[in-house]
Nucleic acid binder design. Sequence first.
DNA 1: AACAATAGTTCAATCGATTGAACAGATTAA
DNA 2: TTAATCTGTTCAATCGATTGAACTATTGTT
Lengths: 371, 371
Amino acid sequence: MLVKDRTKYLLKLNNRLYLFNRLNKLITFLRNKKKITIKDIAEALGITPSAVSKALNDHPRISKQTKIAVKEVAKKLNYQPNNLASALRKGKSNLVGVMIPRTNSNFFSLAVEKIVERLSKEGYNVIIAQSNESFERECKNIESLLLIQVDGIIASMANETTSLEHYEKIKSKGVPLIMFDRWEDELDVDYVGIDDYKSSFLVVEHLKQQNCRRIAHIGGYKHTRIYKKRVKGFKDALKKYELPIDETLISESSLLIEDGRRIMSQLLELPDPPDAVYAAGDFAALGALQVLEEQGVQVPEDMALVGFSNETFTSLVKPSISTINQRSELIGTLAAETFLKRVDDSKWDPKLNKTMIDSELIIRNSSLKTK
Amino acid sequence: MLVKDRTKYLLKLNNRLYLFNRLNKLITFLRNKKKITIKDIAEALGITPSAVSKALNDHPRISKQTKIAVKEVAKKLNYQPNNLASALRKGKSNLVGVMIPRTNSNFFSLAVEKIVERLSKEGYNVIIAQSNESFERECKNIESLLLIQVDGIIASMANETTSLEHYEKIKSKGVPLIMFDRWEDELDVDYVGIDDYKSSFLVVEHLKQQNCRRIAHIGGYKHTRIYKKRVKGFKDALKKYELPIDETLISESSLLIEDGRRIMSQLLELPDPPDAVYAAGDFAALGALQVLEEQGVQVPEDMALVGFSNETFTSLVKPSISTINQRSELIGTLAAETFLKRVDDSKWDPKLNKTMIDSELIIRNSSLKTK
DNA sequence: AACAATAGTTCAATCGATTGAACAGATTAA
DNA sequence: TTAATCTGTTCAATCGATTGAACTATTGTT
């Protein structure tokens, strides 16, 4: 009995001490703005740091009371967990790297936005890196991302990139890698993107409906899978719709404005010029449009024009440019979800996820002859 | 009992699945070599981890021989330092957060590129966050950045933002904060941006030279410092160049395309419409241009037009839009350097750095009457 | 030869959170 | 009454790198 009474007394004392300490801590905090750790919370409550850690992480063996008390004090002290420490211990940084060729493109910008949106819901922080279409930069970025121990990388390849070692390196480190849009077949990774092959069919079908007979294609470099697929789709679609395939009408370039200009000029000088141009990129389409305008060629009457990617400007120029919507938001969300599936042990599956979604043709004035 | 048995069975199954998954992961892991730490290097050389650490960091008390040997082994084992561990110990993550309203804007995209370029030279990794002009998102982003313990934040305010508590929080945590372009005077922080006031002078001077007499201004919201300055500069410039100030010609908006359209329409309906429009944003300028074209108003003959920011499309539309180049690259570089100065203890200076750089007027067809 | 100075390492604590094992006390079962 | 079970917590090791103090050879000085 005596022991019990003494314990009660001690508890009371302890409680008083607790209140006192808490107050003290608060004052100290406000005065020196020092960083609060679980140790401080533990001290304030008269328990150990490990109990605090467990309480904060909802460990089943911690009582409800303690959890509530701990969380309350944590909030009052404005506790911010040290991510570095827990990352070090858990071997998980909660950081995901996203690497894209450029941020100032409608497609990538939207996709990234969705990736961030989805991943932050799961408590991840996203690091955005841009390669500027440069191979070297891409390598460096990957180095950096691995250095800071991201839990995964979601990437889209730079145009310049042909060698894939740096991507292999990610895989060899056991870091999940998800590719979207631009990617190579040889790279055995999860993938999300539109069906480039099918997209070309949409374009050709539409142009055929507009009574176009000779369709030219301004393509991207064939070492990149998506551009190869677009060309393949283009040719197969021509076949399907019984249109002639003329190799002189098919070109390969970086798809910049200048490329569009140069190639369009060349096409116009042909003895038998095309009556429609399908560019695998909007910038090239814009370049082509400029040349057409300069040379007084009527668009779409004399020459129909379709681009690819739905860049912002396509709806702003005159005539507005028909283009393929790659549904960037959906791709972004799916890429994020593929990553989440990959890191979820309970759903671990050796099979790779290859997700192909359907693109959408946006018909604008540059290709709409018939009303 | 039956229930219990079943539970046990399920647990067993679950456990087996878990083990299987783990084994799979282990195999992958082992195949790709385990993670190398300084301990491994130490073991390989028969010295202690601390000696290795010191050798790698070029500590003066370590012999040249040892340093060379350590670095050689490190390279051979493909050692990658654990950033988390060193960050935890040193209290420095080598991460810098950059928060911008949008990535798909020429200005911000270029600025960020330069920031990354400059900071990675100094061994920093950059986290890019976009607020999408949303106040809420901006707050969340700052939370995240602080959570992962960035060494500093370089930011430009969202349009929506009027309250500044979240920025104050950064400061109160002792994390260096550098603002660029969009920023408020009340916020006592380092700053880099163009001289918005002076920029308006450039525009008015140019329009006066083009014989414009009644200049309208499509302004941004005045709660944002830069837009306020542009209006002030505009009025003062009108005074200086002895042009009339007509408040009905000065408006305030979000500077979106629609805003430009709406305001331009209103201006055209005035009994005495202006002969020039100076928009504080390129998108608004574009909207205005669309309306002018639709209504058959000749640009620049009947109405000269100048925008602001040098967005990509300004040089692509017809007529190309005159605009202000904010020298994003320079701003980016300077912002990065301001940060570096701020964290360099040897150059510690309580004085805040406010850097104003001169902008540049790019004269294009939308305002060039005389050749 | 004795001692100080110096170079080159090792030792041990540390950053902050996490986690399995250990332990104490309360409750229930045998 | 004793043993078994369950609950709620503490203990101590750990993640990997860093760092000042301590220690041990080695060299130089007188």
